[in-house]
């Protein structure tokens, strides 16, 4: 049964959702030298998805992102493990990192380390896990659009 939608929540969501995703990506890349990282970024993205869930239930979460939860899990794990294998194949220590510096015309100079790519994997895994939790436990949303206070 579809819950009744709340106008206030829907409007707020429209403002907050994209901002939260941008913040999560910022945290992901900031994590190399500052507080943040793939795990935290993934959690913020998961929080944004949680808002979607509160507003529209499981269907809305499914409609938000392309693909199914396990695609994210698999891709994330592949990226992370791939970074470990990359250094092994080169004969280095596992998870050894390399930094690439590139000139991105307008934006300026950017430095990308393989540790950041590893973090992208972690980010994807966390997002996949959050999606999977909604998939597994979120199938019968309560009748009210917002769960009671004690439920949060």
């Amino acid at each position: 049964m579809r819950p009744r939608r709340s106008l206030i929540l829907d409007t707020t969501l429209r403002l907050v959702f994209d901002a939260a995703l941008v913040l999560s990506v910022y945290l992901l890349f900031a994590g190399h030298n500052q507080p943040g990282g793939g795990f935290v970024g993934g959690l913020v993205a998961g929080g944004a998805l949680g808002l979607r869930y509160l507003a529209g239930g499981l269907d809305e979460v499914r409609a938000t992102l392309p693909g199914r939860p396990w695609h994210y899990l698999s891709a994330g794990l592949l990226v992370a493990v791939g970074m470990a294998l990359r250094s092994l194949v080169g004969g280095g220590a596992p998870l050894d990192q390399t930094a690439y510096t590139g000139d991105l015309l307008v934006i300026g100079t950017a430095k990308l380390t393989t540790a950041t790519i590893f973090d992208v994997g972690v980010y994807l895994i966390v997002v996949g896990l959050v999606l999977l939790i909604f998939e597994g436990l979120g199938e019968h949303p309560s009748e009210s659009p917002v769960p009671e206070e004690h439920g949060s």
Partner: peptide, 16 residues
């Protein structure tokens, strides 16, 4: 590192 990394790689492929 292989005995730790390879099963994780296998797990990722299995999920996929």
């Amino acid at each position: 590192a292989g005995p730790v990394v390879l099963p994780l790689l296998g797990a990722a492929l299995c999920i996929g």
